[in-house]
């Protein structure tokens, strides 16, 4: 497993004694763009924050997170600080709120450079300008002196991306980077991430509830349900033939055309998301699963290889013929 940039192994997370992530394992290879999907509360964002070491102090974490050979969970605060923004970086859902309102955005980018590298200011400014034009902002030099209230949400997200990439990290965790933006801007930001990942050999962990966004950008999709990985497979395989009923249900839900008259058959995903603090016995998805059998209730299924070289946490993955979405 030595070639993985990020390796999360048997991660358990509890905050204030409430378990939120259970036995979470996945990897991201160098230069790979991976999606992390699931409903609200499934633990996607927490996973990202855990990797970054940005959890509140009352959180307790077990397991290992290895990034480029460093164990992030045992690293010292100073070691972590040197990695953050430099080797691994993160962008967030609300781009405007995520930038400081009273500091010109250029200064904020230069602060990141100054935190990690000892370069002359003029050189850092040039680099910031370069990057701002790479993320599609015209007039970089002027934009550097702008405050967030003078910029649109889409521009703020471009600046966040520039800030996250200014020290050339190897991994970018993007937490719902387009959710707060309108649809046309979403597409532009997705394109931008796609281009930057390719040009820079950047690995991206894209956290999203939007399978459309994920399938456009990611070569592999990890599906979380109730704090566990339930499916981890190549995007094309997932779209063609899901090997777990939960991502299958998500796919079905995402293909419903609410404008058409023919929504009679649409049932959504029955029931409410399970609570990771009090998970159901056995397979955590079984109370909502139309394909469950008695065996599903008895024991927690293991994450096992499926026939497509992916992983699934479903006992019946071989027998079920789940339909994907038309390409």
């Amino acid at each position: 497993m030595g070639d993985h940039l990020l390796e999360v192994d048997q991660l358990h997370l509890a905050i204030g004694g409430t378990p939120l992530l259970a036995d979470l394992s996945f990897t991201v290879a160098e230069g790979e763009v991976v999606g992390l999907v699931g409903e609200s509360g499934s633990g996607k964002t927490l996973t990202g924050l855990t990797v970054m070491g940005l959890l509140p102090p009352e959180a307790t974490v077990e397991g290992t997170i290895t990034f480029a050979g460093t164990d992030l969970l045992t690293a010292s605060p100073d070691q972590l600080r040197r990695l953050r923004g430099n080797e691994l970086s993160m962008i967030f859902q609300e781009p405007r709120a995520s930038l400081h309102p009273a500091r010109p955005v250029g200064r904020q980018i230069l602060d990141v450079v100054a935190a990690h590298e000892n370069v002359p200011k003029a050189q850092a400014v040039d680099r910031a300008c370069d990057l701002l034009s790479q993320v599609g902002l015209p007039n970089p030099r002027r934009t550097l002196t702008a405050y967030t209230h003078e910029l649109s949400g889409g521009m703020c997200q471009r600046i966040m991306i520039a800030m996250a990439l200014v020290c050339r990290p190897r991994l970018l965790i993007a937490d719902e980077p387009t959710t707060a933006l309108d649809v046309t801007i979403q597409a532009q930001i997705i394109d931008l991430l796609h281009r930057l990942a390719e040009e820079r050999g950047l690995a991206v962990l894209l956290i999203s509830h939007n399978l459309g966004v994920v399938s456009e950008l990611c070569s592999r999709v990890i599906t979380l349900y109730c704090g566990q990985v339930v499916s981890d497979t190549r995007t094309d395989n997932l779209l063609r033939r899901p090997r777990h009923p939960y991502p299958w249900a998500l796919l079905q839900a995402s293909t419903v055309d609410l404008d058409s008259d023919d929504t009679r058959e649409w049932t959504g995903i029955a029931g409410a998301p399970a609570n990771p603090a009090r998970p159901p016995a056995g397979c955590r998805f079984h109370p909502r699963c139309p394909h469950r059998r008695d065996a599903c209730v008895e024991a927690v299924p293991d994450l096992v290889p499926d026939d497509d070289n992916g992983l699934t946490r479903c006992l019946r993955h071989r027998e079920l013929e789940l339909t994907g979405v038309p390409a």
Binding site: M52, R84, F92, L99, H100
Partner: peptide
Amino acid sequence: DHTRTARAMGLPERVITWRYAFR
């Protein structure tokens, strides 16, 4: 959120406290 960003970018704690949060 902006303090979380400053942390995510690896700014030193002193800078986060005074230049960002206190500001």
